[in-house]
Design a protein around this nucleic acid. Structure first.
Lengths: 207, 207
DNA sequence: TAGATTGTTAATCGATTAACAATC
DNA sequence: TAGATTGTTAATCGATTAACAATC
């Protein structure tokens, strides 16, 4: 049998499972069930069991899942057991918020460098990084072997930045600019656009 | 025939179509095709035509779509033809970035009020709003008939804020706190958690 | 043991795609 | 007209769910 590839949509849910397990741990819980996880996430228990079954058997019949063990397994599967270095491009308001966000480290990511093209900003300190000239982006990414980038620049330069990132060897981009980026196949992109999310809800609002 | 309900997944793509059309307009274009839109978005042309066909016939055989007309139609469908007032809860780094973000207005949304629970922040100006005491949240939401909220508070108070919002009559929540919110059925929620998005990509990274 | 919950199968459900008649 | 592209149908593909044997 060929090694069946896992559907993207399954991978997409694993971080939610992991996040929920972190919560349960914070609440002092040690055991959970697919039913409980599903209730918390608004997902059927069957789907959770099916998703997990792509990767192995992590539970015990009659008991459920050991939370710490399943967390560990999910971190392994998602490769967030060690910290990934991430470059952040754009030191505007959003870049500020991201650079200072305390929630990355505990979940697998470290902002390793921050770039901007504004001479006023270059050299200033943001989070625990000195803002660098975006012209040095390729050099830094290459020399440190960084694979992940966050784009927080204005929409009109986002595609150019994406091109530069891919040239430098970046393999995954989290894009906050409100534009669908075009990248070569094999490069992963995730988009965050608050307006898109808001517009996905207004359709359902009666007034 | 019963009025067939439109799949959520179709609604979810419409804002992307609208955003791409805005781009084409900015480029001075007047006509496009499902093929061109699909190429830009990484979606098949058949899917775009199928999605649009749920709502009517917006194109012309042999020619394609009038960009302005289709934009207008999509704005109508998504109900973003007029501005929606939105309340923002949380005036931290992220709240700052959101309150000062210039990209809302042109796409259907207006930050109408900002709340925080920090006495130091209450009364200060953010964007073009004075930060209000979160205790007055319900009053403001009710008196202004606001239906949409953005949560940008720390994770440990997000669920409480969500409850207060729902009590006040909010029908749609964009949640930036890294937790799956539990809300009554009929309330729409969209989640944005950068770490979840990053973890959806690391699975595919070889190293 | 009795009760509970997993992992998995098969059935159902829904979404995407290919193809083409219609027509601009 | 000839060429192009829509809107739509039917086929394909994939994801979700229900159900239950296995078993802790």
């Amino acid at each position: 049998m060929a090694p069946k590839s896992i559907p993207d949509i399954v991978i997409g849910r694993l971080p939610l499972y992991l996040r929920a397990l972190n919560f349960l741990t914070a609440e002092g819980r040690e055991i959970t069930s697919s039913q409980e996880l599903g209730d918390r996430l608004g997902i059927s228990s069957a789907q959770i069991r099916k998703d997990l079954s792509h990767f192995g058997e992590f539970g015990k019949q009659g008991t459920g899942y050991d939370i710490n063990y399943l967390r560990q397994q999910l971190r392994d599967i998602l490769r967030v057991e060690h910290l990934w270095d991430v470059v952040l491009i754009g030191a505007g308001d959003l870049g500020h918020a991201l650079a200072r966000y305390a929630g990355f480290t505990g979940r697998g990511f470290n902002i390793a460098a921050v770039f901007d093209n504004d001479p006023e900003k270059i050299g200033q300190t943001l989070g625990n990084q000195e803002i660098q000239d975006v012209a040095k982006l390729g050099e830094t990414v290459r020399s440190q072997g960084i694979k992940i980038a966050i784009i927080a620049v204005p929409v009109n330069s986002a595609q150019d930045v994406a091109r530069a990132l891919v040239d430098a060897g970046i393999k995954a981009i989290l894009n906050y600019a409100p534009i669908t980026l075009t990248v070569p196949s094999g490069i992963k992109v995730q988009h965050i656009d608050p307006v898109v999310h808001l517009q996905r809800m207004t359709y359902y609002l009666s007034q």
